[in-house]
Design a protein around this nucleic acid. Sequence first.
DNA 1: CTGTTAGCGCTTTCAC
DNA 2: GTGAAAGCGCTAACAG
Lengths: 342, 342
Amino acid sequence: MASSVGPSRARKVTLRDVAQLAGVSVATASKALNGRDEVSEETRRRVTEVAERLAFTPNTLAQSILAGRSGTVGLLTNDLDGRFSLPILMGAEDAFGAGQMSVFLCDAREDAIREQHHLKALLGRRVDGLIVVGSKTDPRPPLGSKVPVPVVYAYAPSTDPADSSVVVDNVRAGRAAVEHLLATGRRHVAHVSGDVSYSAARDRAAGAGAALAEAGLDHVGPVRYGSWSEAWGRAAVAALLDADEPVDAVVCGSDQIARGVLDALRDRGVRVPDDVAVVGFDNWEPMISGSRPGLTSVDMRFQDMGRRAAERLFAALDGSDHPGVEAIEPRLVVRGSTVPEA
Amino acid sequence: MASSVGPSRARKVTLRDVAQLAGVSVATASKALNGRDEVSEETRRRVTEVAERLAFTPNTLAQSILAGRSGTVGLLTNDLDGRFSLPILMGAEDAFGAGQMSVFLCDAREDAIREQHHLKALLGRRVDGLIVVGSKTDPRPPLGSKVPVPVVYAYAPSTDPADSSVVVDNVRAGRAAVEHLLATGRRHVAHVSGDVSYSAARDRAAGAGAALAEAGLDHVGPVRYGSWSEAWGRAAVAALLDADEPVDAVVCGSDQIARGVLDALRDRGVRVPDDVAVVGFDNWEPMISGSRPGLTSVDMRFQDMGRRAAERLFAALDGSDHPGVEAIEPRLVVRGSTVPEA
DNA sequence: CTGTTAGCGCTTTCAC
DNA sequence: GTGAAAGCGCTAACAG
């Protein structure tokens, strides 16, 4: 027959329909379906059966309006296209998905106006809470003081330290990279990083520098800041080798830079890891999987960050929160670029 | 003072509060704020002013329950971590964001159970429609016949051709790649692709083969299926060159494979594009930007696909839809791997 | 155990 | 112009 697939314009089935067909009142039907124990088993059976048959789906909107909670949260991201917000978002979705929460996704694209617009829409929809995901590790201004629901900032913390934020620990990450290199016998560590205007670049370099200092060492040459690209990694290698200082390890500000460094070293006939070891940051699958040899990298655990953000939001929802900034501990993943593969 | 930042437990301000403070009835306040022209300018001014002052945000839930429409749509994806769903999702968010729609995001992770679970939650929240995003181009079973709202499938079409689906045109993409190679004087085209179990791999090869056939040519050697990795691209080059048949172009099943092919050719001293031209698919930024030379690639326009899916959903919402499968036309992006750079 | 009543926050007749 | 009343779908309190 004709539009058997078309959007069934049939009026949605309501609890009243169910009650009617089951021959009980709406109140009783409600109790039966919600497992309240003030109904006879017989009635419950009958109601459940009818509900099933009519494919009744309770209107959560109506429930929410009563309960005062909607069971939804807003995820306000700023670089949906970026590499960071996505895993964070997954982690959050993960933590929520377990329960009954649904997630509203909005991309503000670094535009404060758009962000306020989305914020308004979300509050109108009575979200129970918000997670705000930034695109850089640099602190960002808070949403505004009069947001009536708990907010957790992820990746980019709020500039207000009293707000709840979950961030990566870039200093520690830089330290981890260098400690690994020192532990595997390297002594001449160069550092090639990305855009110096990113706190991620500076913090990682600071952590690396501190770890070197503790061993009585210093970076070979200056920290070379540039851009977050493979091309910069390649260019930096040229400068590095031409400088003619001994180098037996390169810490790279990102996996992409590291990939460029690896390729350039290979072109020049420098053996990795025999002559020079290379470490990256982010443990980003697409870069890692194609590298020769496999790239040792510091995983910033974005997904866990999203999970933690969700957990903290939950905590805030039942008032058991302890606001402030929480840093996720990075995790070093060792591969062939620092240690010969088996 | 103490918890100035804590979740203000203050009861949400309602329309009644506004009405009371403005000295009018709820009905009048409603009319005033909604721009109905049955209120005096003076009253409207007063009400608006009070609403502003109290930071009144109308409860969309209550509005939705009345209107019968919630102004929300569900985005049911299956590989949030993948490369395809994200741009699609962005395109959709884009198209919706313009209006008043909010988007629920759910990741089913290829798990039918989880998908049904999310579906139920979304229907309970009374979404007005659904977009279902797959992770492969292979058709997928529809959600189920008794979904009471319009559904549009993106990337992975529904197996039911009567459903509304928006897909990429892989055959055409394969054809576009080869036509470009032929137009730039290539005659010996090899084909290295990914996992043969993916229709994307087979369709692209079919399109490429058809274009070659029309020129009285055939692929050099068999279409070499493997995996969607750089490593496979490198391995395939070895096999290809050892086969000792003349080759002046390689069509690669993905940018990742192409990247491997480029690197291997470079290692072997084969010049690109002088000796051999290389084309990839997806125009995926991370792979493109690091390639030497820049990689010519067929852009599948995922974001536009998401946008179209959203537009079709809109159409379905006001009944002006024409279900069926719609293919997005791919777009060739020429770079240095096929044509010498300026 | 069951049904009646009230009410969540809002919009919409329909009298005044 | 304005407000009282009804009602969207549902749950909670209280009678019966």
